[in-house]
Simulated scan of single mutants.
Amino acid sequence: MTHLSPKRPARSVHLKHERISAVLEREIRSGTTAQGEQLPGEMALAKRFGVSRTTVRAALAELNDAGLITTRTGKGSYVLFDGRPLNDRLGWAHALAAQGVDSRTQVLAVTATHDADLAARLGLDTDLFVLVERVRELADGSVVSYERSFLPPVDGIRELPRDGLRGDSITAVLAAAGLQPDHGEQQLSGRRIDDREAAVLRREPGAWFLSTRRTSWSAAEAFTEHVESLLDPDHFHLSLHFP
């Protein structure tokens, strides 16, 4: 499962920049400073906290490392929706909506396709899949993900290329077909996007994106879904926690 970074445990702060970042972090996590909102400039923050701009930069760098803001050269720092865990078991649209993130899904294509390599990797008897290609946009029109979902051609799914994806919810389609994801695996890497992907994502070719592959199986070990996603690293990152 891909997560936006969860809330970090409380920590003691001693340095000036740590105290500033802790205050700003509380404001972001509480919603006082909303997702997508631009933070005040360095001079304004320096005046507010009575510190130098160097100290403010150190505080902003800490927030950036935590995945709470992104800094755009010449434009300033903006709050991300990172920092709140996303449970995508009910589908990303529901997960994002539950966190107050205004997003929409655009279905690019629903086709029947053969992929012998994927079928061999998954140990399936057939290389036929129903492929759903989608992008996810924020309210400002920026595309933050491109997803390719490979589904088993069972009753209720094999008809999608003809009937379309109603409601844009793959999770609902799987549930109606009696397929409930129970377990699986996910791999994460990073890579530069090619020309075709750049056109879909409305970015420059060669831009760096997170690349994930997730395969889900039902409790009865039936293949449920294989998803290949490209995620904008300004909005998504993986957090791992250890005991």
Rank of each mutant, 00 (worst) to 15 (best):
H3E: 08
A10N: 04
R11C: 05
V13C: 08
H17G: 02
S21G: 12
E27P: 11
G31D: 02
A34Y: 04
Q35T: 14
Q38E: 12
L39W: 00
P40K: 11
M43N: 12
A46T: 02
G50L: 12
V51R: 07
V51P: 12
R57V: 02
A59I: 07
L68S: 03
T70H: 09
R72T: 13
K75N: 03
G76C: 02
V79I: 13
F81I: 10
R84Y: 08
L86H: 01
N87C: 03
D88H: 08
R89F: 11
L90M: 13
A93P: 05
L96Y: 02
S103K: 01
T105M: 11
Q106K: 09
A109N: 13
A112S: 14
T113I: 07
D115R: 06
D117Y: 04
L124S: 00
D125E: 14
V130F: 04
E137S: 10
L138F: 15
A139M: 06
S142V: 05
S142H: 09
S145Y: 03
P152I: 04
D155R: 13
G156P: 01
L160G: 06
R162C: 14
L165E: 09
L165H: 05
S169T: 10
S169P: 05
I170W: 00
A172V: 09
A175G: 09
A176F: 09
A177D: 00
E185M: 08
E185N: 09
Q186C: 12
S189W: 13
R196A: 09
R196W: 08
R202Q: 15
E204I: 14
P205T: 07
P205R: 10
A207F: 12
A207M: 11
W208F: 11
L210T: 03
T212Q: 08
R213T: 00
R214Y: 06
W217V: 04
A219P: 08
E221L: 14
F223C: 03
E225K: 02
E225M: 05
L230D: 01
L238M: 14
L240V: 10
L240H: 08
